[in-house]
């Protein structure tokens, strides 16, 4: 015991000396006492570690077991009927209490949800979008329209917006002569405009031909007399009477919004609805972009 105690003291001094040798320059007793405290802590840890280790080594060397053995033994290894140490018991009970806490309160699903995280992401984006594009300039809209077009529209209308050789509407022009003639002949299902669907056969023959030529020509020059049939809904200037019916001159915001919401079925094919995929600002942007790429301008 005595020699072990001496050995322990020597070991402690040696370890402290080694620590001081390695990191002594931090132990300056200067203004910054944090380093001093750390060093003192290190010394305390060394002392406690050595003493605890000595205690158990001493116990292994000198203690003899006592108490009552249980009936069974395993290959000669017996077991005492001693009570478990108090510390173990406390930890065991504590674990059970912690389990209930973890099960009902602490389990991470109560804090995290993938869908919740997704909703936060979307809300954050929408708020940012709102504030950033609150009052877009014409140039901003055009640029935004071009990028939205590239993602949402180009797969069918083509990157150049020309409709990939007749597979979709050529968006560099408002309407083609064949389309005007087809619609006059067959009528057109409504897109949800106040004026409703367009009936078939509003004009025919040379009249229809004249209307088509004038409309496709950008409604310049002398208006054909037969356009009266169209003007009652589309307006004298063919611009749809402020959103009551489709604008025949350009892709205005109302027309874009209606087509995006309802999709469109025409002689070329069917366009699906993009409801919920393109928001209001983006609709304006698309309209601005399409009007900026009109052929011949």
């Amino acid at each position: 015991m005595n020699s072990m105690f001496k050995g322990g003291i020597i070991l402690i001094i040696a370890l402290m000396a080694a620590t001081y040798f390695m990191a002594g320059d931090a132990f300056s007793l200067g203004e910054d006492y944090i380093n001093d405290l750390t060093m003192l802590g290190a010394f305390a840890i060394i002392a406690i570690t050595v003493f605890v280790a000595l205690k158990y080594i001493n116990q292994i060397k000198n203690d003899t077991a006592s108490g009552e053995l249980v009936e069974d033994n395993w290959d000669g290894i017996g077991e005492y009927t001693n009570d478990i140490p108090v510390g173990w018991g406390v930890i065991f009970i504590g674990t059970i209490v912690w389990m209930f806490w973890y099960m009902f309160v602490g389990y991470p699903t109560n804090q995290f949800s993938q869908v919740g995280q997704y909703n936060e992401e979307v809300n954050e984006y929408n708020v940012k979008f709102q504030s950033q594009w609150d009052n877009p300039t014409a140039d901003t809209l055009k640029a935004m329209g071009e990028s939205v077009f590239g993602v949402q529209c180009a797969p069918c209308h083509g990157v150049d917006a020309e409709g990939i050789a007749g597979k979709a509407q050529d968006l560099t022009q408002r309407i083609s002569k064949e389309q005007v003639l087809t619609v006059i002949q067959n009528g057109q299902e409504g897109l949800g405009y106040a004026m409703g669907a367009m009936p078939a056969g509003m004009a025919s023959g040379a009249d229809a031909e004249a209307i088509a030529t004038w409309v496709v020509g950008g409604m310049k020059g002398e208006k054909p007399a037969s356009f009266v049939a169209c003007a009652s809904c589309h307006g004298e200037d063919g611009k749809g009477m402020n959103g009551m019916s489709p604008n025949l001159a350009e892709y205005d915001v109302v027309l874009m919004a209606k087509v995006i919401e309802n999709g469109k079925k025409s002689s070329i094919g069917e366009m699906p609805s993009f409801k919920g995929r393109i928001n209001e600002t983006q609709t304006k942007a698309l309209s601005a972009f399409l009007n900026s790429i009109k052929a011949g301008e």
Partner: peptide, 10 residues
Amino acid sequence: NYRTTDWHEN
């Protein structure tokens, strides 16, 4: 939701 018969055909 965003492609139609004629597009698929092509």
